[in-house]
Structures are given as structure tokens and as C-alpha cells.
Computed example of a mutant assay.
Amino acid sequence: MQVCLFLISASGQQLLPEIAPLQCIDGLRSLVVHEPIAQRVDPRIAPAADAPSCVIQLYFDELAALEAGARLNGPIHRTLREPLIAGRFTQQVMAVRALAPHAPPNQARLERCTYLVAYEGPAEDFDAWLAHYLQHHAPLMSTLPALRELEIYTRIDCTSGLPCARADAMQRNKVVFDDASALADALASPVRESMRRDFHTLPPYQGATPHFAMRSMYGNLATH
């Protein structure tokens, strides 16, 4: 199972860090940078005023490689030093469950549109929560029209020397589409209605569930 480092920039920050050097980190398998889109794509949920200005996802096959990359003065720290030190990012490492075939964009199309969702938690019984989500909610999500990717993330503990605060969402999800129009169509589909009905049967939990529509840019990584 892959692991992913989320680096989440605060709302309103205008500085997009230079991410090209990140692509040379040992063990890094994929890299995605998300920026918010202003248009409304969800008929039920208005665009959030506090959307992060940038979300960076760094994927590794092994936790040890991620920890090596995120050590103090390591390659991630060196590349993103100024925005990290300035407190513009929070960090969270999570396990990745890829539940739909990952069809990466071809070289002529390195952008897609993503709906990022966080369940801040906590759940009253996390085992019951996750079992229901994976057994009932995720299969519905996987039938969204024109879906390109579906990933569910759960938190794990690890070491990190990055000088930024840790986020602690109990779960994150993303669904990915070719563009904002395809995402909007999926969110207006009958599948979404089925998802809303199932949502109301989820085991009890607390916390917010922010939804962010993002423009997603994929790094073109060399083989390590």
C-alpha cells in the first residue's frame, strides 16, 4: 500500500512553491499539485471561502522513503523551505487506498479536476465507520460517471522534520475527472443522490467535512 504526504497551504496564500525539484526525491512515485477553482461544480455545496490555496500530494511506495524525504533539512524541506518556515503549510501522512483504476493523464494532458474531501472526525467507532465507508459508500463513489481516479486515505503515524503543523483528519478522499464539466456532471448524477442517502447511514462521527474542487497538475516523474 502506498503512502502519501499531504502538504496543505492556508487559504489566501498567493505563493505557489517551486515543485519541479521535488520530482527528483528518491523513492517518490508520483506528485500532484492542486489549486482551487472558483466555479461552482457541486449543486449541493457552494465553493468554500476557506479553500486551501495549494495542496501538494507526494506519493511513496514505502513509509521509510517518505520519512527520509521529510526529514529535517531533507529534500522536501530544502525545496519548500521558505513557505514551510513561514507557516503556510500543514502536513499529514496517510495510507492510500486506490479503489478505481488509476489512468494517469497522457503527456499531452497533465491536468485534471479533483474533488478533495476531508472527514475531520473523530468517529464514535472508527472501525465501524471505515468498514461501512469502504463496504458501502466507496462502491457507490466508484460508479460516478466519467470517474478517472478514486482514492481513500486514512491517517498513519510517522516521523517528520518538516517545520509545519500537523493536520489530523481521520480520513480524506478524492475523486478525479478530466475537467470541471465532467466533475459537475458527476455531482449532478443519480449516483450522487445514492451517495447522499448512504451518507445519512454512516456511523456517528463529529467534525467538519470540507469539500474542495481543485485543478490538479501531475508531475512528470523520472524513474528512480
Score class of each variant (00 low, 15 high):
73 N>A: 14
74 G>M: 07
76 I>S: 01
76 I>E: 03
77 H>F: 14
77 H>L: 15
80 L>I: 09
80 L>S: 03
80 L>N: 06
82 E>F: 07
85 I>V: 14
88 R>P: 05
88 R>K: 14
91 Q>E: 05
93 V>S: 00
94 M>N: 00
94 M>W: 04
96 V>P: 01
96 V>A: 06
96 V>M: 06
96 V>R: 04
97 R>Y: 01
97 R>K: 02
98 A>W: 06
98 A>N: 12
102 H>N: 11
102 H>K: 10
105 P>I: 04
108 A>K: 11
110 L>T: 08
110 L>V: 02
111 E>T: 13
112 R>F: 08
113 C>P: 01
113 C>D: 02
113 C>M: 04
113 C>R: 03
113 C>Y: 01
114 T>A: 03
114 T>Y: 01
114 T>E: 04
114 T>M: 07
115 Y>G: 05
115 Y>E: 09
116 L>N: 02
116 L>P: 04
117 V>W: 12
117 V>A: 09
117 V>K: 11
118 A>E: 14
119 Y>C: 02
120 E>W: 07
121 G>Q: 10
122 P>H: 11
122 P>C: 12
123 A>E: 02
123 A>R: 02
124 E>C: 11
125 D>V: 10
126 F>D: 01
127 D>Q: 14
127 D>C: 11
128 A>P: 01
131 A>W: 03
132 H>M: 12
133 Y>D: 07
134 L>M: 15
135 Q>F: 10
135 Q>M: 14
136 H>Y: 10
136 H>T: 15
138 A>F: 09
138 A>D: 10
138 A>C: 12
139 P>N: 04
139 P>C: 03
140 L>M: 11
141 M>G: 00
141 M>I: 05
142 S>I: 07
142 S>L: 08
145 P>Q: 00
147 L>G: 02
147 L>W: 03
149 E>M: 11
150 L>A: 00
150 L>G: 00
150 L>M: 02
150 L>H: 03
152 I>Y: 04
154 T>Q: 09
154 T>V: 11
154 T>I: 09
156 I>C: 09
157 D>W: 08
157 D>I: 09
157 D>F: 11
158 C>Y: 03
160 S>W: 05
160 S>Y: 04
161 G>K: 07
162 L>K: 01
165 A>H: 12
166 R>V: 09
166 R>C: 07
166 R>E: 08
167 A>E: 15
168 D>H: 14
169 A>C: 14
169 A>K: 08
170 M>V: 04
174 K>R: 14
174 K>C: 04
175 V>A: 00
177 F>P: 03
178 D>V: 10
179 D>Q: 11
181 S>E: 15
181 S>L: 15
182 A>N: 10
185 D>W: 08
186 A>S: 04
192 R>P: 05
193 E>D: 12
194 S>D: 13
194 S>A: 15
194 S>L: 13
195 M>K: 08
195 M>Y: 06
196 R>C: 15
196 R>M: 15
197 R>P: 06
197 R>H: 13
200 H>Y: 13
200 H>E: 15
201 T>H: 12
